[in-house]
């Protein structure tokens, strides 16, 4: 019987201790970030979707159309095309489409690129009502950015 009352008292006490802790935290500053109102800075290593890196002199993409990124991609979400042009050494990139609907942001493409032509972007506000919104034309994106 005495055990019952002992537990009753210590149990009730434990509830008040818990209430005290939550009460204390109630008056502490807010730790959550008010996301749409506040902008979150991404860390330098943040892996967003990929983007082409422009050549510093010409502004054209550095890509030489070797196709290693396409080959390395586990989800087959990269498709690219290039053509031979007169007066230009190597191939010129004409099409670089990233199907972001199947991309899992693993970064195999960036790792397999030996020419340093692609990198991760810092975009994260990606939401859209249509599937087509996530088929990115990276050449177009590069031209818009510059």
């Amino acid at each position: 019987m005495s055990g019952y009352f002992k537990e009753l008292i210590s149990g009730t006490k434990s509830l008040f201790i818990g209430l005290g802790i939550t009460g204390k935290y109630f008056f502490e500053p807010v730790v959550t970030m008010q996301y749409p109102m506040e902008h979150v800075e991404m860390t330098p290593r943040f892996r967003g979707h990929i983007e082409l890196i422009p050549d510093e002199e010409t502004g054209e993409p550095k890509c030489v159309v070797c196709g290693m990124c396409q080959k390395g991609c586990p989800s087959k979400c990269i498709s690219l095309e290039g053509e031979k042009r007169e007066g230009v050494k190597g191939k010129v990139l004409t099409k670089y489409i990233l199907n972001f609907t199947t991309c899992s942001l693993c970064g195999q493409c960036v790792e397999s690129c030996k020419f340093g032509a692609i990198r991760f972007s810092k975009d994260y506000n990606l939401a859209g009502p249509r599937k087509e919104d996530f088929i990115f034309d990276l050449i177009k994106r590069l031209k818009e950015k510059s």
């Binding site: 935290y25 730790v31 860390t43 290593r45 943040f46 892996r47 899992s104 942001l105 693993c106 970064g107 991760f120």
Partner: peptide, 25 residues
């Protein structure tokens, strides 16, 4: 909520090295 507050600190740390917050590779 308290546990998530602490967990968020770990996610920030891991994001700074791995580049992602949950499905690390």
């Amino acid at each position: 909520l308290y546990a998530f507050d602490d967990r968020e600190q770990i996610l920030d740390l891991l994001e700074s090295v791995t580049g992602s917050r949950l499905t690390y590779c």
